[in-house]
Write a protein that binds this DNA or RNA. Sequence first.
DNA 1: GCTTAATTGATAATATTGTATCGATAATTG
DNA 2: CAATTATCGATACAATATTATCAATTAAGC
Lengths: 215, 215
Amino acid sequence: MPDKKRLTKLPTIRRMPMYLRMLGKVRKDGMEHVSSNFLAEALDLEAIVVRKDLAVAGILGKPRVGFEVQTAIEAIERFMNFNSPTDAVLVGAGHLGCALLGYTGFVNLGLNIVAAFDSDSGKSGTIHDKPVYPLTEFTQRCKDMKIQIGILCVPGRFAQEVTDMMVQAGIKGIWNFTPRKLNVPQGVVVQREDLAEGLAELSVKLSRMAQLAEE
Amino acid sequence: MPDKKRLTKLPTIRRMPMYLRMLGKVRKDGMEHVSSNFLAEALDLEAIVVRKDLAVAGILGKPRVGFEVQTAIEAIERFMNFNSPTDAVLVGAGHLGCALLGYTGFVNLGLNIVAAFDSDSGKSGTIHDKPVYPLTEFTQRCKDMKIQIGILCVPGRFAQEVTDMMVQAGIKGIWNFTPRKLNVPQGVVVQREDLAEGLAELSVKLSRMAQLAEE
DNA sequence: GCTTAATTGATAATATTGTATCGATAATTG
DNA sequence: CAATTATCGATACAATATTATCAATTAAGC
């Protein structure tokens, strides 16, 4: 049986980036304190959820005042390991790959995409200021740079092949944007990202809404 | 208090596209039946999860044989409303927008992107065989085509503005790829898509893995 | 046909997540 | 400085999701 440890408080963990973003905005606006109510309102959550989530990250508030913005930001960054950036590479510089390369928000979340690779060596050069290399150079460069995270944006049929390369190159975490299951050895974690899930949710919400309207 | 209906069986709903994809592959391979065990193995789930999920969609299996592939596919499509495609438009033909325009998998999930819009009228033309129009034509065209779903891929600072246009144009569901909360009237549903959530999860999984390795 | 093995589906148990209640605390107001 | 009010945090409760158990059913093999 493969290692089967459940990740407790997963929803809380997934909400952390939201808090971080909003706290950043709030700080920029010059506010030093913020209440759970304010955050909840701004993020479309319940105040009690906010309080519990912040408590998980070890953040304490003061009655009548709320939470100290700066302290909260630091606590979340620490809790989530966002303050020690991890180098990552991306494979597959198609549209999705380029979109990810251009997304500036990842640095705040501890992810530093240092390079991209593509099997089409015609794409070599730079995209959004990040170097793009031919895939043939993948293993060597990853090993040289001691890359920890690989972002997989290739067409599905190449997914496993590239995954094997990543594992070979010492990558420990794979962010998988293909709709394939990846076989990886123990000690390597895979995070699947499947847009279809969100679409399914939207689809069902919509049809329930339509039903309500009929009644 | 805003409408507060919880969506039960949400995880099940979000897994449906996976099943559909795998069942399609299995059908292409010529298999007429498939066991929950097989699906679970192929999708990295537990067999019992598969059985329960299929049961929710009204799919019955036969002992010793498993589930009829064709029947299961049709049942899921019916359950999820995937067989009556909904027309959608996309706003913001940047990299992410283009990636979504080029993704062929959505038709199987009942989503038919019929056009895209961009404020930069220089982008007008076609992308991945889909027409791209200037944003000025948005409202009229949406109304003409009776568009139900809008996909929001613009930079965050334009998110609310474009949302308002969508609502105005009669759109009922918004798939929001910006990291902003959208204000919409009752009767319009928003599905947020935030890549940061997955990254947060990966980040925590990785650091737990690293800790395990140390022990 | 009878036995065996595989597989389902029903039921129950457990774990996780979300929500409500309420006393405690600190700033504000009079 | 006392009363009031906003806000937190602890506890308990409820809803949801996952996992385990096991009898029932069907196909296959003898």
